[in-house]
């Protein structure tokens, strides 16, 4: 049996009188704090960065672009319809004689505007609904979620199209239309997240120390549910732009001479058979690229937040 050479009483500090702290608990790994870590994970993902750059590019292109390259987008010019790209017109003209390149910029503006507004409306509504349902619990929760179930049973596109027959044409109207029916999924997501968080130990710990409901909601539930909401907003933008494309394609989009990328593709069947490729593929390409970029960003955000929560 040997006597230990150094005292094993870590609890009381060692013989040299050194502070108890540093080695006993072990070194604290510095992994970078909270949101910084998520941001770093996000920017590590090259595709996500590309996606972000693309989105910014489109915003600049569509909104700032016309300042540099203004074209006529209101007065129909019957002499210059359906011209192939070349000369004066970078991407040719459409059936109204409008410069296609400029039209893409214009169409992009409305696509982005409606995409973001609709997503904002859907997210705000959905988050509030889901949070209240999740917090209230019991009968209130039951009723609120049954309403969501009923509305979810109705195929979204049809309902929106039916209403678009009477109520469409402007950015505001379309944003409201899309947003007011897209809040159902975020509501479900947020409610699920709130329910999960409510049972977590750190929420119990807050209750045990005497925190009231308001504090728990504001300081604990909302910040932790935020990541779900942020990820969802991004996907909502992508989905809203797609729905807008469908509505526009079927002819129920914006009022002439306003347009969106979907509306521009309304006559695409004809364009394709007539061989007017410049009226189909550039617009469609922009649409796909923008939605793709948004989806990539959303995916990367989801991964970034997940990593943070799981890292041990």
């Amino acid at each position: 049996m040997t006597e230990p050479e150094a005292p094993l009483l870590e609890g009381l500090g060692d013989a040299a009188g050194m502070p108890i702290g540093a080695p006993e608990g072990g070194e604290v790994q510095i992994i970078a704090s909270g949101w910084n870590l998520a941001l770093r994970e996000f920017f590590d993902n090259k595709l996500a960065v590309v996606g972000l750059v693309v989105i910014v590019f489109f915003i600049l292109f569509c909104f700032i672009g016309p300042l540099f390259d203004s074209t006529n987008q209101t007065l129909v010019n019957p002499l210059n319809t359906d011209l192939a790209p070349g000369g004066h017109y970078l991407l040719g003209t459409d059936e109204h004689g409008f410069d296609e390149f400029g039209r893409i910029m214009l169409g992009g503006q409305t696509a982005l505007e409606i995409g973001f507004f609709a997503a904002a409306i859907a997210t705000v509504l959905g988050t509030l609904w889901g949070a209240i349902a999740g917090l209230a619990g019991g009968l209130v929760d039951g009723i609120m979620m049954r309403i969501v179930d009923v509305l979810l049973s109705i195929p979204l596109l049809f309902l929106v199209l039916v209403l678009a027959t009477k109520y469409s044409g402007t950015v505001v109207r379309l944003s409201l239309l899309i947003g007011l029916f897209s809040w159902l999924i975020p509501a479900r997501l947020v409610r699920g997240e709130v329910l999960t968080l409510r049972t977590r130990d750190f929420v119990s710990a807050s209750r045990v120390m005497g925190a009231n409901r308001r504090r728990i909601v504001l300081r604990h539930l909302i910040p932790n549910a935020l990541s779900v909401v942020i990820v969802n907003v991004t996907f909502q933008v992508a989905d809203s732009i797609l729905i807008l494309a469908y509505i526009g394609f079927l002819g129920f989009g914006l009022q002439f001479p306003s347009t969106s990328w979907g509306d521009m593709l309304g006559g695409a069947q004809n364009y394709v058979t007539e061989g007017y490729w410049w009226l189909v593929y550039p617009v469609g390409g922009c649409l796909v690229v923008l939605v793709l970029a948004t989806n990539l960003v959303g995916d990367a955000l989801r991964d970034a937040f997940d990593v943070r929560l799981r890292r041990r």
Binding site: A238, L242, A245, Y246, F249, G262, L265, A268, Q269, V272, V280, G284, L287, V288, V291, L292, T294, N295
Partner: peptide, 9 residues
């Protein structure tokens, strides 16, 4: 990320 009609086109 593609609207279905675009693929169709």
């Amino acid at each position: 990320s593609m609207p279905s009609f675009f693929l169709g086109l």
